[in-house]
């Protein structure tokens, strides 16, 4: 697995798109910090960008890489290695190269601004961690979609729809159902609903750490009331981890039964 990872990682790190993605975060980081002149405000703005952008880039990269390297994957499948090795290796290659772009792209401007002299370092690290989680989750989900759809156009469509669902549609549905059922107690429903969306989870995770109750929103406030801040943080981190593992397991199982 490490071998496959090593080569797909070094392939992806040299791709033009990795550089563009890195450059985007570099520009974003510098602009936010030097225009805002405030680290904590910059972290909040970045959070709003990261929770939408990392899932989108993860989804698009994941699905594009899978379809583009199909013939090469066939060549690898004919080698004496396990199927799970190939797919996990490629999965790690995509996820880690994207995460590296994120970490470098935001880390460099923040270090240049003097991150270590401020109290924001923990918040910033958590922001990067949640961005990394979202990347891993959405790359895994998009590879699963690609494994289930040999038709490229369909697979691409489903992947974009999946991103749109978690980033936009999901919240709309929850809001709508809460309005319709407002006469009923909805706390538990809303809490469970937030477990089921990794984007919501990562938003709650960062906001709990930032400790800004005004931005927490309904589900975030529920989280805080239900678990308290520190337990809330661990619970949301644990759930994010579960969100990485589940599509990973699905990917391994589906790939072992697929025809290529």
């Amino acid at each position: 697995m490490i071998k496959i990872f090593k080569y797909s990682f070094s392939d992806l790190m040299r791709s033009r798109w990795s550089f563009i993605y890195l450059a985007f975060y570099l520009v974003l980081g510098f602009v936010l910090l030097f225009l805002n002149n405030d680290l904590s405000k910059a972290v909040i703005t970045l959070m709003n960008v990261i929770v939408v952008l990392t899932p989108m880039i993860g989804t698009i990269f994941g699905i594009m890489y899978f379809y583009n390297s199909r013939e090469f994957t066939e060549l690898l499948l004919a080698q004496p290695v396990r199927r799970s090795t190939i797919f996990l290796g490629q999965y790690l290659g995509i996820s880690i190269s994207l995460t590296l772009s994120l970490v470098l792209g935001l880390g460099i401007p923040f270090l240049a601004y003097g991150l270590f002299q401020s109290g924001e370092i923990a918040n910033f690290l958590l922001l990067l961690i949640s961005g990394a989680f979202l990347t891993f989750i959405f790359v895994a989900l998009s590879i699963c979609i690609a494994l289930f759809n040999s038709n490229k156009i369909k697979g691409f469509g489903y992947a974009i729809l999946m991103w749109l669902f978690f980033a936009v549609i999901y919240d709309g549905i929850i809001l709508l159902s809460m309005m319709i059922f407002q006469d009923y107690p909805l706390d538990n429903f809303a809490l469970v609903a937030s477990f089921l969306n990794p984007i919501d989870l990562s938003r709650i995770l960062v906001l709990l750490k930032l400790d800004i109750s005004a931005l927490l929103g309904y589900t975030g406030a529920l989280f805080q009331r239900f678990f308290g801040t520190s337990l809330g943080l661990s619970v949301s981190l644990g759930l994010m981890l579960l969100w990485v593992i589940m599509p990973g397991v699905l990917m391994v199982r589906k790939s072992s039964k697929n025809d290529f």
Partner: peptide
């Protein structure tokens, strides 16, 4: 195995 279509990772 010599596959029909030769396609490899572009940046290697």
């Amino acid at each position: 195995y010599l596959p029909q279509i030769a396609r490899f990772p572009d940046n290697l």
